[in-house]
Design a protein around this nucleic acid. Structure first.
Length: 328
DNA sequence: AACGTTTTCAACCGCCGCCTG
DNA sequence: ACAGGCGGCGGTTGAAAACGT
């Protein structure tokens, strides 16, 4: 159509931050006349602004019903859940959050929630686990697919939407698995016979583009240590995200769950405490690892709340059938 | 205290869809 | 059916504030 911008015809129209005087004029005018026509309003109010600018100022700032201040955890939850269903439809999301504007929600998403989701290893666009670990791409997708079901077969968009809102604990597990696989694959390359060591003792964080090489001279943990680490991971995820799990809904505020992690990509998998009072770090290392112990811990983690656990079991069977120590 | 860097958020830009003549 | 006007929306920008060194 080639329509010209609303203010193009008037180069003298003011732009930039609004002054208190302008605000007052706008409020007075709308209180007096309403805003039947935004295009006509500036002249009526005596403002050297375009109608669009007036509308924006009113809807995003001056409207009397605007709620100011920090977003609550409940609001944050609502935004995440609605975004999983609606995508970047900020105005639609805003209709579910009284007093919040689409602009405010959009800003909050871009500056806060997006980062948190990325930290959790969740793609903010798809709300699915990130699959940018190229060498694990196929497996990750398989796992996601097994959790999500076959979305392509669903015709009902709401059903699809609910499926997309994967239970966060499942997402977290996938991430945990990805992280473990990343370490394994990295250490296969370095011929490290104890690929889980760094993960378990906290020396390896998964934010590293190249995971730090694990010293060969570290003797390995006893089985109890690995299990402790797994339990920590488990508590971390389940306590953080899966309480009273209602399928498809993030139950826990993101601000509580992963904020303190230093990992820009994935959640940390070990206890926050890295001091020497930590039972993990403090435990005497006497035994060489048996991979079966690791798998046992995994089995416990996986079977605890997996309904049928079939996809995990298949994975375990696959990995357990590998010779020991790990050799892929 | 000064400076550089990062984060936040108000405001703008341009496109889209609805409505009207 | 079509063109133009308008409001609304989402993406982006840049100044200000906050933070770190």
């Amino acid at each position: 159509m080639g329509r010209s911008p609303c203010c193009a015809e008037d180069a003298n129209v003011k732009k930039g931050p609004w002054t208190p005087e302008e605000d007052q004029k706008l409020v007075d005018c709308i209180n007096k006349h309403g805003h039947g026509s935004w295009r006509a309003l500036p002249k009526l109010a005596g403002l050297n602004r375009c109608g669009k600018s007036c509308r924006l100022r009113w809807t995003n700032y001056l409207r009397p019903d605007i709620k100011r201040g920090k977003f609550t955890e409940e609001e944050e939850r609502v935004i995440v859940n609605l975004h999983a269903v609606l995508g970047n439809k900020w105005s639609k999301i805003a209709t579910h959050l009284p007093g919040r504007t689409d602009n405010e929600i959009k800003n909050y998403w871009n500056t806060q929630i997006r980062k948190k989701l990325l930290n959790m290893g969740i793609d903010p666009h798809t709300h699915k686990p990130r699959t940018d670990l190229n060498h694990l791409l196929n497996l990750s997708q398989l796992l996601c697919a097994s959790q999500l079901g076959n979305l392509n077969l669903m015709n009902n968009p709401w059903e699809t939407a609910f499926k997309l809102q994967v239970d966060a604990a499942q997402v977290a597990k996938t991430q945990l698995l990805q992280n473990l696989l990343k370490i394994i694959s990295t250490n296969i390359g370095s011929q490290n016979p104890y690929p889980f060591e760094g993960l378990l003792n906290g020396t390896t964080t998964l934010s590293d583009k190249e995971l730090a090489p694990i010293p060969q001279n570290i003797t390995n943990n006893a089985g109890a240590t690995e299990f402790q680490a797994m339990e920590n991971s488990c508590t971390y995820f389940e306590g953080g995200l899966n309480n009273e799990s209602k399928p498809g809904i993030y139950n826990q505020s993101l601000s509580n769950s992963f904020e303190q992690t230093e990992n820009p990509v994935l959640p940390e998998l070990v206890s926050e405490s890295h001091d020497h009072t930590s039972p993990i770090n403090h435990m005497e290392k006497t035994d060489t690892t048996t991979d079966s112990t690791i798998y046992e811990a995994w089995e416990k983690l996986i079977m605890e709340d997996d309904d049928d656990g079939s996809c995990w079991k298949e994975f375990l069977d696959l990995t357990s059938s590998s010779s020991s120590p790990i050799s892929w």
